[in-house]
Computed example of a mutant assay.
Amino acid sequence: MSESGESASEETSNTMVDRVHGGRPMLWFLVEGNRVLVAALMLAVSYTILVVLGTFGPGSISKLFDPAPIASTFTPTIIGIIMGVTLVLTFNQFVLAEELGPVGDQRERMVGAMEFRRDTEDAVDRTTSPPEPSAFLRGLVEATGNRAAELIDALESDPDLDEAVREDVREYAEGIAADAERVAADLEGKQFGRFEVVKAALEYNYSWKIYIGNRVRNRHEEALPDTIDERLEELLEVLGFFGPAREHFKTLYFRWEIITLSRSLAYLALPALAVSAYMILVFEVGDVAGVIAGFDQGLLFVGLAFAVGVMPFAIFLSYILRVVTVAKWTLAIGPFILRETDRGEDIGWE
């Protein structure tokens, strides 16, 4: 049975948009969208809810003319901004702690990285691997496509092979070759630090490919000639290198994101604090009395000031949402699939 035939669940689809419940809009909100735009969307929704409830919900707009509610709202906002930024910057130091280790630790990291590069170069029959993450991952993906093509050639050159076995292995190899071409094109020219590199790596569902490859191989173990079995083993070997490489670059990207988040909060903290302090020390609702399109101007202004005050929190949520979502999608490494929808009666011990 082919890879597509095995993967009846949408969660094992080759593309992320097909694996995410909610489709393209949810994928954009969770990981693809610019984090500033996502934060702005969350603030806009919060602002709209506040204005609508303040206008049509139970209660009286006259409470705004009492300074106590405004002070009680923006005082915790100031405290939250100071504490939140301090905590994020402290957490940032833990993230960078590994970069500040002694020379022995740094040398061990260097040796491990060089050994992995050499092993990968041997597996893909290359003498030198590229230094850029996108080019490195692209080379691995293209190598799986090449191994799949070699497997197809080996199938075609063996006239004695059982036709059912040939069809099963060919469909598996053709699926990998086609998917490798698509993901390799997505990785071409991508710059690390932007989510596109991690996104393209996530598109390559290597765990499912390893599982199906092992299953196909074991199912036809007695019928596969040595030449075809070796080609299939080489394909699975290269797929096995993709997992650690993706996890390494994903970890580096998480650090990059947290550093970017810390810098963004440093930029936004003082403006948010200034607006919150203004609302407590100077602002009076009577100065903006009036109605615009049926909405009280005081409510609109206070809601806008509140949105500005919690802007650092919205930025924090937007970045953490992407990090934890990617972390959840990649908790397991190798041929392990954690999503419950991937389970079925045909997935088990054989």
Rank of each mutant, 00 (worst) to 15 (best):
M1Y: 01
S2Q: 08
E3T: 04
G5Y: 04
S9K: 01
S9R: 00
T15P: 02
V17A: 09
D18L: 07
G23T: 11
R24I: 06
L27G: 02
L30Y: 12
G33D: 03
N34W: 06
V38K: 02
A39E: 00
L41T: 13
S46Q: 10
S46E: 11
V51R: 11
P58H: 13
P67V: 14
P67T: 14
P67C: 10
A68Y: 10
P69H: 06
S72L: 13
F74K: 10
T75C: 00
P76C: 07
I78C: 04
I79R: 08
G84P: 05
L89D: 02
L89C: 07
L89A: 15
F91G: 15
F91R: 10
V95N: 09
E98T: 11
L100Y: 14
V103L: 10
D105G: 12
Q106R: 11
V111C: 06
A113I: 07
D119I: 00
E121W: 01
D122G: 05
A123C: 02
P131N: 14
A135I: 05
L140C: 08
V141A: 09
R147E: 13
A148E: 04
A149N: 10
L151H: 04
L155R: 08
S157H: 13
L161M: 09
V165Y: 10
R166M: 07
E181G: 12
R182P: 00
D186I: 00
L187A: 04
Q191D: 12
F195H: 09
E196T: 08
V197P: 05
K199M: 04
L202F: 14
W208G: 01
I210L: 14
I212K: 05
G213S: 02
G213W: 05
N214C: 01
R217T: 08
E221C: 00
A223W: 03
T227C: 00
T227P: 03
I228M: 00
R231I: 01
E233D: 15
V238Y: 03
L239N: 08
F242W: 04
P244F: 06
W256P: 00
E257N: 03
T260D: 15
T260H: 12
P271E: 15
A272S: 15
Y278C: 09
L281T: 15
D287E: 13
I292W: 07
G298L: 04
L299R: 05
L300H: 11
F301R: 14
V302Y: 13
L304V: 10
A305N: 11
M311W: 15
P312W: 08
I315Q: 13
Y319F: 14
K328E: 15
T330G: 06
L331I: 11
A332S: 06
A332T: 03
G334C: 01
G334P: 03
G344S: 13
G344W: 04
I347S: 09
